[in-house]
Write a protein that binds this DNA or RNA. Structure first.
Lengths: 234, 234
DNA sequence: CGTGCTCTTGAAAAAAATCAAGGCTTGTGG
DNA sequence: CCACAAGCCTTGATTTTTTTCAAGAGCACG
């Protein structure tokens, strides 16, 4: 399954206008044709040699490390348009394992070749640096999520984040789909899955949200923000 | 208090060998002379326009956001050699507030001018990208810290991280100083300060560590790692 | 229409937060 | 140099929250 980056529906998200029409050919050399992965398939493993960055075209990805008790510490969820693998560049091995949550389409970018292309294309460096900063910013959001004390506050925070990221803007998407299981959310928030489930129930009882399995609808955004405990001046 | 970057004891950490001797002059133009900040002084505030990155020369810095209950969610601690402010580049305003934990010496790097210099100095882009990846990797470490369930596991993780960062290598420093208060650690780990204090006591009782106020000594590294619950294959 | 999941709920046990008080440090001023 | 005050850290007792263990409900799929 091969295709050009310029044909890609995500091209404006992924590589915004830094190449001329002709230049996308250079890109096609370093980007492997995107590949369909079945549900729960690993893309790379913790400890593998770092070679490539990846972009989610469709579906959803989780990255996690396994702790000594055998349970997963989830370190990130990635949705369409997101790039993953960035944190592994400096150590040259993957710091975590990446696995699909649903059937997903993923492009692979050879990092060596990207770095080489960057030398002759200064704009590519600007793009990369901005991308990194966004990635740090989204990590920042998740920190605040985890440092909340109560389960309901953590979950409210989490839902707000996913809602915003689903919309790919500063707006909150009112209805959205959670591609991950309750257990994955629990592993991400540092809670037991039962606690996560009860936190969902609590948010429903408070009439902040409605849910139909993995379909979430925010009914009272203001109150959900209140539950999240975040200072929403910003 | 003015000085050259090439005279700086951190120069190999901060800007490793990418400039010729003469080239550091270019740098001196964009780096403000490092400034002494008193204890608990703010360097920038959440929401301020983003203008500069900062490097810790001595002392220690915390970044935090204030939640709706008025307590602090700490998003990072920065030790000598660390750069902070990176997560604010993409949004162009500071995502958090930075404050000194102790009297500190901090350099300010004007970001606009750095970006400009980068255009003519490709090696600077490589350096920047590596720096970002390291920053993401260290955020990654902290995720795993927060997603531990028990207070003692979180604290053990935290101490291991600080120990490693203090040594500025892959080694764990056996004796080290914690520049932050117990309350700061608690705000960072998402715990009450009493719980943090009790977790310290527990690690001492288990003979993992010894402590004298803010001076920590690891007596049994293996057991401390066990407490941290991390899978230490890597 | 079962079978195997995930998700939810309940009850009991464990952990953490809260409230309260006392001890230890540090810094200041007599 | 000592005494005292303020703040930080620790500990205890109680309340609240979360985890754990157990079981049942709902859904997806063959």
């Amino acid at each position: 399954m091969t295709q050009d980056c310029k044909e890609c529906s995500l091209s404006n998200v992924c590589l915004p206008n830094i190449f001329d029409k002709g230049d996308t050919k250079k890109l096609d050399k370093i980007v492997s044709p995107s590949k369909t992965h079945q549900r729960l398939q690993s893309i790379y493993h913790q400890g593998d040699d770092f070679q490539s960055l990846y972009v989610v075209k469709s579906g959803a990805i989780k990255t996690y490390i396994t702790n000594s008790k055998g349970s997963e510490n989830i370190t990130g969820f990635y949705l369409p348009g997101d790039i993953f693998g960035l944190e592994s560049i400096s150590k040259q091995y993957y710091l975590n394992t990446a696995k699909t949550l649903t059937e997903s389409l993923v492009c692979r970018i050879n990092y060596q070749e990207l770095a080489h292309l960057r030398k002759n294309t200064p704009a590519l460096s600007d793009w990369a640096i901005n991308l990194f900063s966004e990635s740090l910013a989204s990590g920042h959001d998740f920190f605040t999520c985890l440092s909340q004390h109560t389960a309901a506050a953590r979950l409210a925070n989490f839902l707000l984040l996913i809602s915003k990221r689903t919309s790919r803007s500063e707006q909150y998407q009112r209805k959205f789909h959670l591609p991950m299981s309750r257990q994955d959310i629990a592993d991400y928030l540092g809670l037991a899955n039962e606690t996560t489930s009860r936190a969902f129930t609590k948010l429903v009882e408070k009439k902040c949200i409605q849910k139909m399995n993995k379909e979430i609808e925010i009914i009272d955004l203001r109150q959900l923000k209140e539950c999240s405990n975040l200072n929403q001046r910003l």
